[in-house]
Each structure stands twice: as C-alpha cells, then as structure tokens.
Amino acid sequence: MEKSGRQETAHRLRGTLATVFRYAVRTFRAPLDPASARRGALLKVEVTHRPSITDEVKLG
C-alpha cells in the first residue's frame, strides 16, 4: 500500500491492525503485536497547509 503512494492509508491501516492485535494479546489469542514493529518504518505523510478564508465577502 505504501509503495503505491498511499502513505496516509498505510498509517491508518497500521493503526487499525495494531488495535486488533493489542486486543488479541490482551485476550491471550496472540503472543505479540506484529504491527508495533512497523511503527517507525512507514514513510511520513507530507502535509500541505493551506490558508483559510477569513473575509466573509470572499467566502460568499
């Protein structure tokens, strides 16, 4: 997923899987959380900040 350029989706997917595996570890259904190993391995998501419209006339 990360190789196809969908870094944000990869981060969300890792978070969801980590939640599932943490639950599995807590209920003794899995020995460890493999998603925690990928925590720092994913590329950072580039954020583009955009200015907000503060003028009510321009806003419409």
Rank of each mutant, 00 (worst) to 15 (best):
A18R: 01
V47I: 09
P34E: 03
R50H: 15
T54L: 15
F28W: 11
G40V: 08
H11C: 04
R38M: 09
D55G: 09
R14D: 01
R6F: 07
D33V: 00
D55W: 07
T16S: 04
T48D: 04
T9Y: 10
E46C: 02
H49T: 11
K3I: 10
A41W: 03
D55H: 04
V47P: 00
R50D: 12
R39S: 03
T54Q: 14
P34K: 06
T48F: 13
R12F: 03
P31Q: 06
Y23C: 09
R39Y: 03
R38E: 07
E8M: 11
A30L: 14
L42V: 02
D33I: 00
Y23N: 13
L43V: 09
F21D: 08
E8Y: 14
P31N: 08
L32G: 11
T9V: 14
T54E: 13
V20R: 12
S4L: 15
M1Y: 06
G15K: 04
A30S: 13
D55L: 07
G40A: 05
V45H: 05
R22L: 09
T9S: 10
R26T: 05
S52Q: 12
Q7H: 09
A10N: 02
E46F: 05
H11A: 07
K3G: 10
R6T: 11
L42H: 00
R26I: 09
Q7M: 09
R50E: 15
R38Y: 05
S4N: 15
T48H: 07
G5D: 13
L42W: 00
D55Y: 08
A35L: 01
R22F: 02
V45N: 05
L32C: 08
T54D: 12
A10T: 15
V25D: 01
L13E: 01
E8T: 11
S52Y: 05
S36N: 06
L32N: 12
G5P: 13
A30H: 14
V47Q: 02
P31I: 04
G15R: 03
V25H: 01
A18G: 05
R26H: 07
L32R: 13
K3H: 10
R6S: 11
L32E: 10
A35E: 03
T16F: 00
R6V: 13
A35P: 00
M1A: 14
L42S: 01
G40N: 06
T54C: 08
T19A: 08
D33Y: 01
H49G: 04
A18Y: 00
E8L: 15
R22N: 14
V20L: 06
L32W: 08
A30Y: 11
A18V: 02
R29Y: 13
A37E: 03
S52H: 09
V20W: 06
P31L: 08
L32A: 10
Q7W: 11
A30I: 09
V25W: 00
M1L: 11
G5C: 14
K3W: 06
R14Q: 07
F28R: 15
Q7G: 06
V45M: 08
D55I: 04
E2I: 11
L32K: 07
K44C: 02
P34A: 01
F28L: 14
F21S: 12
A35C: 08
R22V: 05
R39P: 01
E46I: 10
G40K: 05
G15S: 04
P51M: 05
H11D: 05
A37G: 04
L32F: 10
V45C: 08
A35G: 01
Q7R: 12
V47A: 01
